[in-house]
Structure formats: structure tokens, C-alpha cells
């Protein structure tokens, strides 16, 4: 598969403090690539480096096989960007704002703009400073997609959108994906990442700690186990559990990702007074990585 975004050894230091370190990503054409991590992990720094808002300390970023730097500004013709907070010119109407944005591109953006306006139910005659947060986000979505970019970078894309609009937004993303657009999707909302992304990278403390295909979460074998037993310490030792989430008297809560038969054989040797086994949901899986 052709790679549309390639990030090699990207490092950014703010003075002496760390921003991101040795980020390595390869994003294939036509995929929606999730990017998640706790606050301050380096998601926005990575995005700002891709958009060339800030200078990299080391590393290279390629979009459509062209390097991103100040000289190669024309590459932005092929990139759409949706920031987490939208800041536009307050005194313009939505129509004028969209026309101004279109004036930067060589192509005719009218058709796609009209489609998106209709789909997102945007009132073009309103002034930017009259828009609610959600409506501003909708304008941001049109601005990011109206020039039919090959790559779209989205940071907290659905914040401010009501559930109905979120659905429409997911539909738009599916349309874009079907057209072959590559989408880099940074989000805090894990359920939406699971729903729309094909792959996900997890960033923590400025470094990528895991890259997974989303289907791994469907066939994941991680279990959350809660056992109450007088012999709890022996059980934990025999199961070689390192990550105990809670321990209270004879009760232990932990994540088990080993072989299931071994688990059953082991616990059958002990006297168990209470046993609860649950499949981990996406939140738990990510929390497991974050911790």
C-alpha cells in the first residue's frame, strides 16, 4: 500500500523540556488513523509539526512523498486541517469566510463546499462571531474538506458537535475514506476511534507506545479478572500477574492476557469464594497502556 504520511524520528524539544521523542509513523493511503493519548502526551505537538506550525528539533515528515518544510508550502494544497479550537475572522460571514478560504486554492471548491454546507446544515449568512461552538466546528469541517485534500489532519474533531451532527460527521469521514482520502484523527473519545479508525497509535510521555490495527480490539484476549480467595497470593504468583489493579484483603482485581486454559487449570487448584471475569472494553485497554 502507498504511504501518504510518513514520520521519521520526529523529535521536538521546547527548550530543555520534552515535547515528543522519536515519533515513527507510517499512514497508508485511504485509511483513518487514530491518534490517542492522555493530555500532555504530545498529540498536539505532533500535529503542529505535521502542519509545520512549529519547528522540528530532528526528524522528517513526508506527505504524499514530499517533505514538509517552509519552502514546500504548496503541499498544503493537498492537506486539510481541522484544529481542536477553531479561530476564524469574527467580522466575516460564514459565506465570506469560506470564499476567502477557497481563494487560496487553485481548484474550484464550490461543489464540495455546497455538499458539505447542505449536509451539515450551515447558515452561510451568519457572522462568525454569532456562531455557537458546534456551528463553528461545522464551519471548520467545511474549511478542512472543501478543497478535497488527499490528507486530512484532525485534532479533537467532534468536540462541540451534538450526537446527530457527530453521526453526519462520521458519514462524511466514511465518504472521504471511500474516495481514498487519508485521515489522521487525534481524539480523546475512544469509542469513536474504535468506530471509525482502521489503525491507532497510542502516544504517552511524548513517545509512541503502541500501534495497533483496530480489529485487534475485536479479538483481544485481555480479560479483567476479580477473584476472592484466601489463597489469593498463591494464585497471583502462579498466574504470574504483574499488573494488579486493586488488592483488598482476599480480593484482587487484575488484567490477565495469558492463555485461558492455563488460567482455568490454575484457579481450579484453589478454593475460590468469588470469581468475576469480564472482557476488557476499549477504555480499559487504553487505560492499561496509559498506566
Amino acid at each position: 500500500m502507498e504511504s501518504m504520511i510518513r514520520i521519521n524520528n520526529l523529535t521536538k524539544f521546547y527548550g530543555k523540556s520534552r515535547g515528543i521523542k522519536d515519533i515513527q509513523l507510517e499512514i497508508e493511503k485511504g485509511t483513518i488513523y487514530g491518534f490517542i493519548g492522555p493530555n500532555g502526551a504530545g498529540k498536539s505537538t505532533t500535529i503542529k509539526c505535521i502542519m509545520n506550525f512549529i519547528n522540528k528539533s530532528t526528524g522528517e515528515i513526508y506527505v504524499n512523498n514530499q517533505i514538509i518544510d517552509n519552502k514546500n508550502y504548496k503541499l498544503k494544497e493537498e492537506i486539510g486541517y481541522l484544529p481542536s479550537e477553531i479561530h476564524l475572522y469574527d467580522n466575516l460571514t460564514v459565506k465570506k469566510m469560506l470564499d476567502y478560504s477557497a481563494s487560496f486554492y487553485k481548484k474550484d471548491c464550490n461543489q464540495r463546499k455546497k455538499d458539505l454546507i447542505k449536509k451539515l446544515e450551515i447558515d452561510e449568512n451568519k457572522r462568525i462571531d454569532e456562531l455557537s461552538l458546534g456551528n463553528l466546528k461545522k464551519v471548520g469541517i467545511v474549511l478542512a474538506l472543501m478543497h478535497e485534500p488527499k490528507v486530512v489532519i484532525m485534532d479533537e474533531a467532534t468536540s462541540g458537535l451534538d450526537p446527530l451532527m457527530q453521526e453526519k460527521f462520521y458519514e462524511i469521514l466514511e465518504e472521504e475514506k471511500a474516495k481514498g482520502t487519508t485521515i489522521f484523527f487525534s481524539s480523546h473519545i475512544l469509542s469513536e476511534v474504535k468506530r471509525i479508525c482502521d489503525k491507532v497509535a497510542i502516544i504517552k510521555d511524548g513517545q509512541i507506545i503502541k500501534i495497533e490495527d483496530m480489529d485487534i480490539f475485536d479479538k483481544n484476549e485481555m480479560l479483567q479478572v476479580k477473584i476472592t480467595s484466601k489463597e489469593i497470593n498463591e494464585i497471583l504468583r502462579e498466574l504470574e500477574i504483574a499488573n494488579i489493579k486493586e488488592m483488598k484483603n482476599d480480593e484482587a482485581k487484575f488484567i490477565y492476557n495469558g492463555e485461558i486454559n492455563k488460567f482455568i487449570k490454575t484457579i481450579s487448584k484453589y478454593s475460590i469464594s468469588k470469581l468475576l471475569i469480564e472482557e476488557l472494553d476499549i477504555e480499559d485497554i487504553f487505560m492499561h497502556y496509559y498506566e
Binding site: 502542519m51 509545520n52 506550525f53 517552509n70 519552502k71 508550502y73 504548496k74 503541499l75 498544503k76 494544497e77 492537506i79 486539510g80 486541517y81 484544529p83 479550537e85 479561530h87 476564524l88 475572522y89 478560504s101 487560496f104 486554492y105 474549511l143
Partner: peptide, 15 residues
């Protein structure tokens, strides 16, 4: 200051 530069920098226009 008003953060509208984010809009401009995202466009195919040089600094």
C-alpha cells in the same frame, strides 16, 4: 494573538 494564524498557516501560502 487572535490565533487566526492557524487558518493562514494551513493554507498553501508561504510565510
Amino acid at each position: 494573538s487572535e490565533k487566526t494564524i492557524e487558518f493562514l498557516y494551513a493554507k498553501p501560502v508561504s510565510r
